[in-house]
């Protein structure tokens, strides 16, 4: 998901750019809009669902500060 989070953001930027240029037909606009909101929802869910996990690896040495 970390890859696709970044990809999702890149796609969002692309969608905004197309919408800003505004040359596309209305149907395409609505298509992009729903794709954009879906990506936003997906990214938001990814951030919300995150569960912090800490793994401590063993080390052979003593670990005095």
């Amino acid at each position: 998901m970390e890859q696709s989070y970044e990809k999702s953001l890149m796609r969002l930027e692309e969608i905004v750019k197309i919408l800003e240029e505004g040359g596309q037909p209305l149907e395409k606009t609505l298509e992009l809009f729903s794709e954009g909101t879906a990506l936003i929802a997906k990214c938001g869910k990814y951030l919300d669902d995150a569960e912090k996990k800490i793994t401590i690896l063993g080390s052979g040495e003593n670990n005095a500060q």
């Binding site: 996990k53 793994t55 690896l57």
Partner: peptide, 8 residues
């Protein structure tokens, strides 16, 4: 996820 490798 945080992965700690304790080190001296």
């Amino acid at each position: 996820e945080i992965v700690l490798r304790p080190a001296k």
